[in-house]
Computed example of a mutant assay.
Amino acid sequence: MTELWNWRIDGARPEVVYPALAEALGRVVMPLAVADPVRLPAYAVVCDVWEAPGEFGTVVDCYGVPERLSEQACVAALARLLGRDCLLADDTLDAGRHLLVAPDGTVRPVHFDVLETDDGEELSNRRLCTMADPRCRGWCQRSRWAPDSVAPVLAAA
């Protein structure tokens, strides 16, 4: 069984992201636009990187990622390699809540306003998920990533 990962990066050009992805995943990365399923090596991961509007406008989709790879460790390695903050989905059903992964490997929950546009989701108004915000005292407390939490990702070295 393989997985699909979807991340966002704070301002990185796609041509810089692809080689960093290959290093972070420890796999050959094939851009979706040129991936030929017939000639695709068994160990390759197909990725698509494009620009969306708003904050964290660089979007990364990785298709066919082997289950044994840790998504959090890979995104932490990517953040470190690029020197950029990255976002990944958290474990709630809140479309505006994400996990912010810093280049130093720390992870914290954050919220954004989400606007659907013709060019994709636009994220804006980043704010920490904190108990000081009454909106975070209910749904967010059920998450593995509780409000105000800051945790390291161990494999980000």
Rank of each mutant, 00 (worst) to 15 (best):
P152E: 06
V150N: 01
V101T: 00
T106M: 12
E15V: 13
L81I: 07
L88M: 15
C74Q: 02
L128Q: 11
C47K: 06
L69N: 03
L21K: 01
Y43M: 12
E3H: 08
F112Y: 12
C47G: 05
A155N: 08
W7K: 10
L115S: 12
T117C: 09
D94N: 15
P147D: 11
R39S: 13
L154W: 11
R84A: 02
V28P: 07
L78I: 01
L32P: 00
A95T: 07
C47R: 07
P134E: 14
D48W: 03
D148Y: 07
A146Y: 00
R137G: 08
G96C: 09
D91C: 08
E116V: 14
S70W: 12
L115D: 14
L100K: 03
L123N: 09
T130K: 05
V110M: 04
T106P: 05
D148V: 09
V29D: 05
P109F: 03
R68Q: 08
M30D: 00
A20R: 12
L25M: 12
L115Q: 14
P37K: 13
E122Q: 15
P103R: 13
A157C: 03
E51F: 00
R137H: 03
D113Q: 13
V34S: 13
G11M: 08
M1E: 04
R84S: 04
H98T: 04
A146I: 02
L21S: 02
L78F: 08
D94Y: 06
L81A: 15
P147F: 06
S143T: 06
P66R: 11
E67L: 14
R137T: 15
L115E: 15
A79W: 05
V107C: 13
D48F: 02
A146D: 00
A33G: 03
E71G: 12
W5Y: 10
L32Y: 11
R8K: 12
